[in-house]
């Protein structure tokens, strides 16, 4: 009796079991890439107050912005926040050099950060360059 050899007819097909892993990997990649939300914010170039003093040409008087807890003043004159940017633009008009557009920002100790951000944003919007005035404390020993 002849037994027909079935032969080695192996069905050659790509291992479909790997496709699920491949699909899963691709899904993970897209989920990870989509989920990282970039943070938002604002760059600020703040020259060091000591350096700024050295570079300031003699006779130049920079604008001074004083911040309190809720208000703001330009060169000692109280200004409403709604009028701040136009007033600042007016004062900075015609000043082309960066050292001329320097605006010294003084704050009281109880000025909150969000108020500082708001006002300094308006100064930058008007074309000013922020210089932060920080009070230094020194311990002096008296004899």
């Amino acid at each position: 009796m002849r037994i027909a050899r079935r032969g080695n007819k192996m069905l050659r097909e790509s291992p479909a079991i790997l496709l699920t892993d491949l699909a899963f990997n691709l899904l993970i990649f897209f989920v990870v890439c989509a989920s990282t939300e970039p943070e938002t914010g604002r760059k600020q170039k703040v020259p060091s107050s000591s350096k700024e003093q050295a570079e300031k040409p003699q006779g130049e008087q920079n604008l001074e912005v004083s911040l309190t807890r809720t208000g703001a003043a330009i060169n000692g004159e109280n200004v409403a926040l709604a009028d701040f940017t136009p007033k600042m633009r007016q004062l900075l008009a015609g000043k082309t050099k960066p050292e001329q557009r320097m605006v010294v920002v003084k704050t009281t100790k109880d000025t909150p950060y969000h108020h500082w951000i708001r006002v300094t944003g308006m100064v930058e919007q008007a074309g000013g360059v922020i210089a932060v005035l920080v009070e230094e404390s020194k311990t002096v020993v008296t004899p």
């Binding site: 020259p47 100790k109 109880d110 950060y113 500082w116 932060v132 920080v134």
Partner: peptide, 19 residues
């Protein structure tokens, strides 16, 4: 910086980073 942080805290930080 937390939005309600006072200048007594954040100003020296800004100065430190600048320095």
């Amino acid at each position: 910086i937390h939005k309600d942080t006072l200048a007594a805290t954040f100003e020296p930080i800004i100065e430190a980073v600048s320095q």
